[in-house]
Structure formats: structure tokens, C-alpha cells
């Protein structure tokens, strides 16, 4: 077509995807949502500030909105890949539901993925550790207390 298009391959949720006509400036977020249909990854600030677009790259949380798709080297896990295939929930997801302060839920896929990496590194986390460790995820409904409690609770399981 023109030289603004590139081809690339991405490993997402265990499968390799070949993308033939991505824009050279296209973000990982854009490829996930609009080329692979993985709309669990949420689009919000697009500046790496809010965490709604958080995915795991080789197990580490990153903002997919400020990662160039052409610069992603590793295994990407989105909320679709994190959630058990049989429709059940992980202990973290159950703890977040039990703590239950969620209003719109738009931040939750990012919260869950960032939270999953956080609890791996912080078993039996204190509230302060959760507040600092989860500072990359904003909830504009300000339902923080339940989210913090859910993640703290999940870290103790």
C-alpha cells in the first residue's frame, strides 16, 4: 500500500498473530483492540497515565497505549488470556468481587492485570504496599477502597 504500513507478528495469550498492514506508529493497544478484537483491554488516556490499557508483557504490567506494536518483543497477556478459559474466576477476581465497590468497571481489566503482577511480588501485602504498587491504575469512579481491599485480601490467599 504505502510505506507507512508494516507487517509484524505478536504473541498474544499463547497464540502468534501475523499483522500485515499495521501503521508504523500503531500502539499495542490499537492492535489488540482493533485488529485482534481483544476489547477487554481498555482505551482511555492514551498517555500512559491511567492504567486502563494495562497488559502483561512476559508477566510484567505495561501500558499498551504507549508501547509501539513494532517494539513489543515477548508474550502479551490480556484480560481475555488471564481469565480462566472455563469461565471461572481467579482468586484475585473473586476477591475484587467480594470487596465489591465497583461502579462502571472500566478500570477493572487493568486493575486485575496490574494486581495479578503486584500480588505475585507482594504476598501478604500491607495497605500501603497496595496503594503504592497499584498507583499506575486510576478509577475515576473513585472506588478505590474496595479495590485496595480486594487486592490486599487476594495477596493473603
Amino acid at each position: 500500500m504505502d510505506d507507512e504500513r508494516i507487517s509484524l507478528s505478536l504473541r498474544v495469550n499463547g497464540a502468534t498473530h501475523r499483522i500485515e498492514d499495521a501503521w508504523y506508529f500503531e500502539t499495542l493497544l490499537s492492535v489488540l483492540r482493533y485488529r485482534l478484537g481483544l476489547t477487554g483491554t481498555k482505551q482511555a488516556c492514551e498517555t500512559g497515565s491511567c492504567g486502563a490499557c494495562t497488559v502483561l508483557l512476559d508477566g510484567r504490567p505495561i501500558n499498551s497505549c504507549v508501547a509501539l506494536a513494532a517494539d513489543v518483543d515477548g508474550d502479551v497477556t490480556t484480560i481475555e488470556g488471564y481469565s480462566p478459559a472455563d469461565g471461572s474466576l481467579t482468586p484475585l477476581q473473586e476477591a475484587l468481587i467480594a470487596a465489591g465497590d465497583v461502579q462502571c468497571g472500566y478500570c477493572l481489566p487493568g486493575m486485575v492485570l496490574a494486581g495479578s503482577a503486584f500480588i505475585e511480588e507482594h504476598p501478604n501485602a500491607t495497605e500501603d504496599e497496595v496503594r503504592e504498587g497499584m498507583c499506575g491504575n486510576l478509577c475515576r469512579c473513585t472506588a478505590y477502597l474496595g479495590i485496595i481491599e480486594g487486592i490486599r485480601e487476594a495477596s493473603a490467599r
Binding site: F25, T27, C65, V66, A70
Partner: peptide, 26 residues
Amino acid sequence: ILGGGTLVVAERSLGIDIPPAYLLLS
């Protein structure tokens, strides 16, 4: 030149800098 992209890509999203190419150091 793009190190991790967290600033460079955000600046494209904001319309601050629309470079015709990226040089990735990764």
C-alpha cells in the same frame, strides 16, 4: 529515537510530535 516509548508514543497520541520514522534501541 525511542528507548521504551513511554514519552515518545504519548507525544504522538497528544499530537505533540508526529515523526515520520522511529529508531528503536530495544
